[in-house]
Design a protein around this nucleic acid. Structure first.
Lengths: 250, 250
DNA sequence: AACCCTTTCCGAGATAACCGAAAACTTTCT
DNA sequence: AGAAAGTTTTCGGTTATCTCGGAAAGGGTT
């Protein structure tokens, strides 16, 4: 690495990633996985325990609830998060589908709140789930309200990765769609991130017209025909507007 | 340092703690707060950014949603968490108070799920909130089902810290109470952690009688008279039993 | 434009991180 | 039970790498 960045920190978090990803494990298994000497892994785990972010449960090391706490703290500092609170529930009830709140972070769309409709949990929609901006309705809702320069920057840096065969990969098509989003007030994606899944999202702007997040409703294509879609779009937009108003009070 | 643990790791997480605690900040402010050279703090922040757990928002560094993700992942690996899912909501509805799920971690009680009753959010009950075992109903519910040796160990290590004037600080009294918990099936605390707050908690055991967590209901003392308390205890115990059954299926 | 403040870059020197090797524990098998 | 295989933990020397002063670059204000 030509980068000038603390190796210990990178390694420590690689360990955390591994623990978070594949669950609690022992020293030697971790060492195998990460291709590091056992003793070194052990040293790191001790250090991590000292921080309180990792603990040792009888026979395996695992992450602690501190991550939950930090994540939660961060959410509650997010103004949109507080502003959207009740609305998300309303949206889920009115539409009967999953309703989520997303924000942009490091050029990606991230789910920060999930409200489930009456149906089962969606494996793809959990707090912290990250996705490319161009491949989802909420992402496009947010892109549509960023300065064009910012959008081209993002495309330059990450490209328009094809997540499913439906993903928009042509910049021109994307820019057209963003124009549509601005005129009709909401974004839609049909299986562009997850095959068979339709998402409809409304942008949340603050009083300076800066994009702050998006409210997203998604469900299986089979259940969302044309009529339903525009109905859902209305609900989402209304919720976004209310949130917008709340934002100014917070 | 007599401790044999990676300094970089400790410092990195101290930075994270600071960011989580006091919100986004700039390099020099962080350096002040933690009494470290600016350049060093800068180095760490760069390293943290490389890991994806910290990001830089125009003028300040802040934690990312990765913490949320890791925390969430961990919860979903917890069997109790999955087993309690719907029950918590039922409890909150039936009692009209806050219902929470707690587990034991590193000799403390930690909230991992919160279901709010119709009333406002409780500042003390958020996911990740930690508290001493002896000073809360859920803590006592869990202590009551640990081996006595374990309990004395915990007392030795941490003592019976007085959180409020009501907190039990005498080991004998505590052991008596734990006996009560075992015989009546639920634990109660009256302002022992937060003045004016009453908590009622039922333990969740698995088929091997190992303690896995506790369901807790709490509300202001004024609202919870004797009758309500035993009523709530029933609801909590029933939910704990259902959870227990679910546990065996998961 | 000059000032101050904050952030970023850089390099040399000292520290503390890294890993091999062996000891202490566990678990499994005969 | 006793041995064997596996896993975790301890320890110390070396040397890679982290640390931090100082300088440069950026940003905002008077």
């Amino acid at each position: 690495m030509t980068e000038r960045s603390n190796q210990s920190v990178r390694r420590a978090f690689k360990l955390v990633d591994e623990l978070a990803e594949n669950g609690p494990r022992g020293v030697s298994e971790l060492a195998d996985q990460l291709d590091m000497p056992v003793s070194t892994v052990h040293d790191y785990l001790q250090a991590l325990i000292a921080t309180g972010y990792v603990t040792k449960d009888e026979s395996a090391y695992k992450t602690t609830t501190r991550f939950l706490e930090v994540g939660h703290r961060q959410c509650h500092r997010l103004e949109v998060f507080k502003a959207v609170r009740d609305e998300l529930e309303t949206v889920a009830e009115e539409t009967g589908e999953h309703a989520t709140l997303l924000i942009e972070e490091d050029d990606q769309a991230v789910i920060v709140a999930v409200q489930e409709g009456p149906d089962a949990i969606n494996l793809f929609a959990y707090p912290g789930a990250r996705m490319p901006l161009h491949a989802t309705a909420p992402g496009k809702a947010m892109l549509a309200h960023m300065p064009t320069e910012r959008v081209t920057d993002i495309i330059d840096r990450h490209g328009l990765v094809e997540v499913t065969p439906q993903t928009v990969t042509d910049p021109d098509v994307l820019f057209d769609q963003l124009e549509d989003v601005r005129s009709q007030g909401y974004a839609i994606d049909v299986g562009e991130r997850i095959a068979g899944m339709v998402c409809i999202a409304a942008p949340i702007l603050d009083k300076n017209d800066r994009i702050r997040g998006a409210i997203c409703v998604c469900g299986p294509r089979s259940r969302l025909d044309e009529d339903r879609r525009s109905e859902i779009a209305d609900v989402a937009q209304r919720a976004a507007n209310v949130t917008q108003v709340n934002l100014d009070y917070v």
